[in-house]
Simulated assay, not measured.
Amino acid sequence: MSTTSATTLDSPVLRAITTHTQSENPSSFLALNTGNSVFNLPGVDGVAVYRRTGRYLVQFGGPFAAPGDYGNLLSGLRQYARDEQLHLLSVQLQRPDAEQYREAGFTVNQIGASWAVHLPEFTLRGTRFMQLRNKISRALRNGLTIEELPADEWEEALHTIDSAWLGSKGDHARPLEFLVGQVGGPAQGHRRLFVGSIDGSPVSYISYSPVYGSRSGWMHDLSRRIPGGSPGLMEAINAAAIEKFVTEGVEWLHFGFTPFTGLSEDDELPGSSPSFQWLMHFLWAEGAALYPAQSQLDYKQKWAPHAVLPEYVAFDGPASIAAFAHIFRACNAF
């Protein structure tokens, strides 16, 4: 058994997420975020990615492992957590992961969903997209230009946008980590960056991460903008990226995971916690101060997603609010 960093681009993590795609996790590239730790076992083909916060080990996704080694890696991670006297919980599990965790004795509940557009079917024509087209047109009339740019040549401009965006969130706002993407670092060469500028000054950007598996494509990941500027900046950048992806033959654009959204009784597994299920529905309705799920979903639904993919959380033991809170601690939310 060993634990290492996920930051090096030639690490086993990159090979694992590109090779072992049977769980169909559209966010798997986040496993390469700097700050993650990696668990593996000798002779076992795969890795598990996690962050430690307090007395909790918060795992991202299920094991990225060969089918025959999946259970061994999960058992090894579970034992490692127990040996370290840590509580294990796993977040952003896909349905195939969730079923294996349930069989292993975890308490598994839906925590939200991710959303995806099938680009060969996508069009902005029609009355359904009239408001979206108007926002895009307004941004372009206000002088917005959009380019795909190398992030390493625009670090200062991106930092200026990030600082302004974070400052608009209040004095105690913190940049989220772990379950959101990054710009820069060893993995940047695999991402794509689209930047919007007005009068030559960058004012907004969207970073896209690669998605592997049967719904391969790109994930609309990290997005930032200068507050108070032209409406429609993000919509215009994403539309430009879609146009380019379509010309390249890209099949899917994913919009990533949003907690508390897409909740359905039909997606819950036997043995799920009714009280935790109630909490997820409560946070969808009343939890904007914790996470703005409704506004995030509003943006994603503008693009009329073709696929809604349930995502899950698994507790090694009963579901608990204390454990759930450590997911947000791992994300630097508080």
Rank of each mutant, 00 (worst) to 15 (best):
A285V: 08
F334E: 09
G61Q: 05
L57T: 03
G189Q: 03
L222N: 05
P227E: 10
R141G: 02
K169I: 03
H306Q: 06
W115M: 13
G68E: 14
Y312F: 15
G126L: 09
E243C: 07
I321S: 04
E24V: 11
F129Q: 12
E148T: 02
Y205V: 05
G217D: 04
P12D: 05
E311R: 09
L283V: 07
H306N: 12
G170W: 08
E148R: 12
A304P: 02
A289V: 05
S273P: 02
A164R: 06
Y299C: 13
T145C: 11
A6D: 00
D221T: 09
F334N: 12
F194P: 00
L290Y: 06
A157T: 01
V250C: 10
Y56H: 12
H20M: 12
A151Y: 05
S320T: 09
D316M: 07
Q131W: 12
D266R: 11
L57F: 06
Q79V: 07
P202E: 04
T160I: 01
R125A: 14
F129W: 06
S137Y: 08
R128E: 04
G43K: 06
A98R: 03
V195M: 14
S273F: 11
S295H: 06
A307P: 04
G317R: 04
F282C: 10
H326P: 00
Y80V: 02
K302A: 13
G126I: 03
V183E: 09
A314K: 05
G317Q: 04
P305N: 03
L140M: 10
D171N: 13
S320N: 07
I198V: 14
R125S: 12
A322I: 13
A236V: 09
P259N: 01
Q100Y: 05
S114A: 14
P63N: 10
Y205L: 11
D199G: 02
S23G: 08
R329F: 12
N238S: 14
F64C: 08
G232D: 11
E235M: 13
V183L: 15
V308M: 15
A66E: 07
L14W: 08
Q277V: 08
P67Q: 15
L309F: 09
L283P: 06
L269H: 03
A31S: 06
S5D: 06
Q301I: 09
W218Q: 06
S5M: 09
F260H: 04
E251D: 10
A139C: 11
A322G: 09
E156R: 07
A330Q: 08
E84L: 15
S197P: 00
G271H: 12
A333F: 10
H20F: 15
A151T: 05
S28V: 12
A113T: 06
D97R: 08
E251L: 08
T123Y: 00
R95V: 09
R51C: 08
T247H: 03
V313A: 00
S223H: 13
L269G: 07
A241V: 11
A314C: 04
T258M: 13
E121H: 05
L32P: 01
A307V: 14
R125H: 02
